[in-house]
Design a protein around this nucleic acid. Structure first.
Lengths: 202, 202
DNA sequence: CGTGGCATGTAAACGGTTACATGATTTA
DNA sequence: TAAATCATGTAACCGTTTACATGCCACG
């Protein structure tokens, strides 16, 4: 069956709401998951075709808007079973790749001011992220209290907010620390010296 | 030149320490970056060859251990320039993919107890992670105070620790919340109903 | 009438992992 | 001498992004 995670995201979206098109699924992922998942059309459309041939989803006529030229899908019983099986499997950690941390790690090698610049940029991105997440949170406050998905959605939102806040806090102290480091380096300008450096590893 | 990030990690490692082999670079990445970066041999060895033909690194004889059958490299001036240029470029956020959050988001669709299981598993992984990072931190305490890389390495370590702690805190409250949710769901067992669910999006 | 959003798709390239093959050296 | 670790490499595969192509429909 070789089901990719793209396929499961699609099944998941269709389990929440039926009669979605590829375009709408893409949009729904962006709106609901944007901060922790992404899919491109190049993945979505072929996956929809494959899921349909496997009988996990079913193409159907546009229900509400019959004018639009578009293909909608709904989840089959087999698809729901497949989704549930996948949900029960242990989650996998994706191989870690954080380019910000990488550049900060090599900060000593960078030109003066570069690490500070990167941390400032990180702060900006995280402030935007926090604003987005808190916006969603405040919009959700008191609404849809009966929606059975709501508690789970609020939990994911909560982790996003907690991590972003922690990163912002760290950023503040990092900026102070970096100002100190670079001031010291400016007083004592020693060029990078490869040969005499100690082992990598603290 | 089409330089991948793998190439820059290699340049970065060689800027910290010369006369590293592909094997040692792999190990150094794992030891120093394990929590936020990874490279496979299938990337490293071809990259070393390419970087050498481009003159950014230079193959050299094993310095300290001439017995070993292995190829070591050192960074050229051109390589250092190339590294510095890349370091000054804005960092890119990798496309977000967090399978844990995805499965939690779809938690309502999962069998009973599954979301709690995932959060418990997350807590375990994060506890191990925190132990590792704090182990490094305590090993580093008071050591290599003159190492010019140290402040940057400590900053990266600090962010890792801060994020892991934040995730652990969130996990505790999430477990309580999930116990509550699933207790309520057990009292009031309503099957998933696709057709009448509201729009996705809180 | 034009623009922007809606909508579907494909081909090529890319970055990366996995699995495999091979063999030397060290240590128990 | 057996096992672990050191060490180098390649081919196939995989998931994904990007760029491109196409065209509809609604709204100003």
């Amino acid at each position: 069956m070789q089901n990719t995670r793209t396929a499961y995201v699609i099944l998941g979206m269709l389990s929440i709401k039926s009669n979605l098109s590829g375009y709408e699924i893409h949009k729904a992922i962006e709106d609901n998951f944007g901060s922790f998942w992404g899919e491109s059309y190049g993945q979505i459309y072929p996956s929809l075709k494959r899921l349909a041939t496997e009988g996990l989803i079913e193409p159907c006529k546009p229900a509400s808007a019959p004018k639009k030229r578009r293909q909608e899908y709904l989840l089959t019983d087999a698809g729901r079973v497949c989704l549930r099986e996948w949900l029960a499997l242990p989650f996998q950690n994706d191989p870690p790749r954080n380019e910000f941390l990488l550049k900060l790690f090599f900060g000593r090698e960078a030109a003066n001011g570069v690490p500070i610049m990167h941390v400032r940029e990180l702060q900006e991105r995280n402030r935007r992220m926090l604003a987005t997440l808190e916006g969603i949170e405040s919009m959700a406050r008191g609404r849809e209290l009966q929606n059975p998905h709501r508690p789970y959605w609020m939990l994911t939102l909560g982790l996003g907010i907690a991590l972003t806040r922690a990163a912002l806090d760290w950023g503040e102290s990092a900026l102070a620390e970096l100002a100190f480091i670079e001031a010291a380096a400016a007083e004592n300008p020693q060029p990078a010296d490869t040969s005499t450096n100690p082992e990598p590893g603290l």
